[in-house]
């Protein structure tokens, strides 16, 4: 099928202005948008810059705006877009470094700020084996263990667009993963970090994050869980 692909191009600091390049191409309906971009590089313009690695939705490299919605380019098939016109742009709210590549450092700084690691200083079981956890306890935080830190959620959030100080949905998801892990002992510290104007209270429940998540994490629900835990002082 023939498509018209519009791609955002920008190289800062050279007096350049952001612009769009347009390509008319023959592609297969089952091609991923990533395949289409690869085809542009192979056939037309090798200088098009974007990140990619696993190409099947688990590494989180290729989050971008495809026809206005955040997604991983390797998880969107051309036929599923329902149109022959495809516009690809960088995710919003992070500085564009070149074309579709944005500066991910602020995103990872927010992630790091919520103590996104397991904390339990109690002695290990005396047999040296695993700490016990029931399947139900494990299930409680299953959803938020799926995060691949692609930033699709955070950069779809109007609160983050308005204020880059906002810790953002991805960081809250990763805090949630530990707050609700029955083996972890630092829930209170994490809740204290997130009980802030720039923490969970900046969330306006727009649900963009949930829609954007390529891992189908119920992001807005996770944020609601954390809000509730802060208010009630209880983990449910």
């Amino acid at each position: 099928m023939e498509i018209k692909l519009k791609v955002f191009r920008y190289l800062p600091n050279n007096g350049n202005k952001p612009h769009y390049d347009t390509y008319i191409m023959q592609v297969n309906p089952t091609d991923r948008v990533l395949d289409v971009l690869e085809q542009v590089r192979a056939d037309s313009d090798p200088s098009l810059a974007y990140r990619r690695s696993c190409a099947h939705g688990v590494c989180g490299s290729d989050a971008m705006r495809i026809n206005g919605r955040n997604a991983l380019a390797c998880k969107v098939l051309v036929k599923d877009l329902g149109t022959n016109e495809i516009t690809v742009e960088p995710i919003l709210g992070l500085k564009v470094l070149r074309d579709l590549i944005v500066d991910m450092d602020p995103f990872f700084e927010h992630f790091k700020s919520v103590m996104p690691y397991f904390i339990n200083n109690e002695p290990l079981p005396s047999d040296g084996k695993e700490r016990l956890q029931s399947p139900e306890q494990r299930e409680r935080f299953d959803d938020t263990t799926k995060c691949i830190l692609c930033a699709a959620c955070t950069t779809s959030c109007p609160s983050f667009w308005a204020n880059e100080e906002y810790v953002g949905p991805a960081a809250i998801v990763n805090a949630h993963r530990f707050v609700y892990d029955s083996r972890d002992r630092a829930a209170a510290e994490r809740l204290q970090i997130l009980n802030d104007q720039m923490g969970v209270w900046r969330c306006r429940t727009v649900f963009n994050c949930t829609e954007a998540c390529p891992r189908d994490i119920q992001v807005t629900q996770a944020i609601a869980d954390v809000k509730k835990a802060i208010n009630s002082g209880k983990l449910e």
């Binding site: 339990n120 695993e130 700490r131 016990l132 530990f178 892990d181």
Partner: peptide, 16 residues
């Protein structure tokens, strides 16, 4: 890995 917090799936009696 479990002591680092890795969320393994669990058996009925709570083991890996």
């Amino acid at each position: 890995l479990e002591h680092y917090g890795l969320p393994f799936s669990r058996t009925k009696d709570g083991r890996i």
